[in-house]
Amino acid sequence: MSDEQGQRERWNGRAGSAWVTSQALLDRMMKPFEEVLLEGVSGERILDVGCGTGVTTVGATRIPGVRTCVGLDISEQMVDAARERAERAGSPATFVVGDAQTFGFEPAAYDLVMSRFGVMFFADPVAAFANLRAATRPGGKLRCITWRDAAENPFMTTAERAAAPLLPDLPVREPNEPGQFGLADREIVRRILTESGWTDIDIEPFGAECSFAEADLIRYVTQMGHVGIALAGADDQTRDRVVPVVRAAFEPFVAGDEVRFDAACWLIRARNTTS
């Protein structure tokens, strides 16, 4: 199975379903990143890559001067949820199902391409960012948030580290491979953007303090990430062994009725100076 096919199957399967059913939890947890991303958004026409359930896409349409924001995601389930969100909010945001690496964008259609954690999964990132640049007008911009290294984000790997002895078939993360930490290396990101034709590249580290309700921690543990996918297909006996162990591993992040953690990310900015 190709990386591209694997990502499509994952996000149209259990992973996509988990993001849809956990929208409220993830909206709260990801709120600091939404604020950082949208703080610098400008332009009439915006493309939101890997838009998920649409919170950043809808948020962009509230910014003065933004006429349209199109959310693109590989997950049909999440795009359906995003459309429902936009309808509830009375937002003009629109949504399309597709893979940004190969999607046939109208040339020079957007003033800004933005993404919150949606650009780390490409099988061929140079081709993907070149395709996104072609969709951006001359002088248009790129603005993305990605994760820094896994070692700087221990919260994100707590579940799989705790569950690994009990779930030996859990996928092993490989550095710089498509996935959550696929763009963790600043120099690799710079090379990818340079080779795909972007200029004025700036890759700035930033940290965010994230939180969600402790009452939602078991939901997070049993639905999100590699462990959530593994538990979705596990029998009750396996779940009864794994869940208490994983929940205990998160205890350092629990403060009263909240789960809190620090996130280490990159804010990536670039420009399309091709005429």
Rank of each mutant, 00 (worst) to 15 (best):
M1W: 10
S2T: 13
Q5F: 12
Q7S: 07
E9Q: 12
R10F: 08
R10M: 13
W11G: 01
G13C: 01
G13M: 02
A18N: 01
V20Q: 04
S22W: 07
S22K: 11
L26C: 14
L26K: 13
D27T: 14
M29F: 14
M30Q: 15
E34S: 13
V36M: 08
V36Y: 04
L38E: 13
E39Y: 12
E39G: 15
G43W: 08
E44Y: 05
R45M: 12
I46Q: 09
G50P: 01
G50L: 01
V55F: 10
T57A: 08
G59M: 04
G59S: 06
G59W: 00
A60H: 09
G71H: 05
Q77W: 00
A81L: 00
A82L: 06
A86I: 10
R88Q: 12
R88W: 09
R88E: 13
S91D: 02
T94H: 10
T94C: 13
F95D: 02
V97L: 09
G104K: 14
E106L: 15
A108K: 11
Y110G: 12
D111F: 14
M114G: 05
S115P: 04
F117G: 06
M120S: 13
F121E: 03
F121Y: 00
D124E: 15
P125W: 05
A127G: 15
A128C: 11
N131E: 12
L132C: 04
R133K: 14
E152H: 09
F155P: 02
M156S: 14
T158I: 00
E160Y: 04
P168H: 01
P171R: 07
R173H: 14
P178D: 00
P178V: 03
F181I: 13
F181C: 08
G182S: 05
L183Y: 02
A184M: 10
A184Y: 11
D185G: 04
V189D: 04
R190G: 02
R191I: 04
L193C: 07
E195P: 03
E195N: 03
W198H: 12
W198R: 11
W198K: 12
T199S: 15
D200W: 00
I203T: 06
F206W: 10
F206M: 07
C210Y: 03
C210K: 07
A213F: 05
A215T: 14
D216I: 07
V221I: 09
T222F: 00
M224Y: 02
G225M: 06
A234Y: 02
V246S: 10
V254K: 09
D257I: 12
E258F: 01
V259G: 06
F261S: 11
D262Q: 13
C265Y: 03
C265T: 09
W266A: 00
W266T: 02
L267Q: 05
L267T: 04
R269H: 07
A270T: 02
T273Y: 04
